[in-house]
Design a binder for these strands. Sequence first.
DNA 1: CAGGATCCCGTACGATACTG
DNA 2: CAGTATCGTACGGGATCCTG
Lengths: 137, 137
Amino acid sequence: MNINKSCSNNPNYRQQQFEQNCPIEYTMALIGSKWSIAILRELLKGDRRTHELAEALPGISSKTLTLRLRTLEKHGIIRRKVYPEIPPHVEYSLTEKGRELQPAIAILKQVGQRLLSQEEAFRPLKVNSEVTQRKEA
Amino acid sequence: MNINKSCSNNPNYRQQQFEQNCPIEYTMALIGSKWSIAILRELLKGDRRTHELAEALPGISSKTLTLRLRTLEKHGIIRRKVYPEIPPHVEYSLTEKGRELQPAIAILKQVGQRLLSQEEAFRPLKVNSEVTQRKEA
DNA sequence: CAGGATCCCGTACGATACTG
DNA sequence: CAGTATCGTACGGGATCCTG
């Protein structure tokens, strides 16, 4: 596991350029930016036109939407189909490769649920640094 | 699944403050920032002193390291033990809650490996937008 | 309708000191 | 050794306007 070493001392973390070697960084580059997962979740439900995505993701800016879509496309995660009509018609769909992200997204959700429930249960949520006596003394 | 709706139109994504409801956002708040996973992976190997972490994570600044550690601690992911000695001695360890992040990290790695191998296999890596004829016509 | 071009801002992170 | 304080920067992302 050379991941700790090679992974994160990388200024371009979560950018188009990443360490090229670290699988974790690669995944994070795909799903780590703000709207990526939301877009992917939407496309997991089915193909979507641009404005359908925009409407399903209230708050996203058109700039960010296209930027994320371009990046995902670049990595072969989604496919972009242009129907040369007027008005324009563009449809996005997940590729097979893109569907492989689903388990990752699912786990992120599962783990989050478990951790959230624990957070509610104990309600510490504040720094509870312990001061301990010397280890051996 | 109200996640798309509630999840990501949130300006504080991946910050200490998050939507409080979305599990995915919560997980991303924990592991989404640059050095989080690297730190967690190191602590998964065993308890670590501050400088041990710093040395294992070449490139991280002391500021960022402590910031990440504080955040993780705040969420009950790690534990901070202070041995009041001179020179100071602080030791970090994963909590039980923190260990639950391991499967997520593992999946991120697995998925990344699979996707990376496909990337090498096909080497498209460029935008290959298709222009298609009208759907029905 | 899809999306490019600008302008702007918050902030996460790095570099570099400096303390107890 | 562990951590804070300060300063500077890059960049992700929002808002707005504009085009084919």
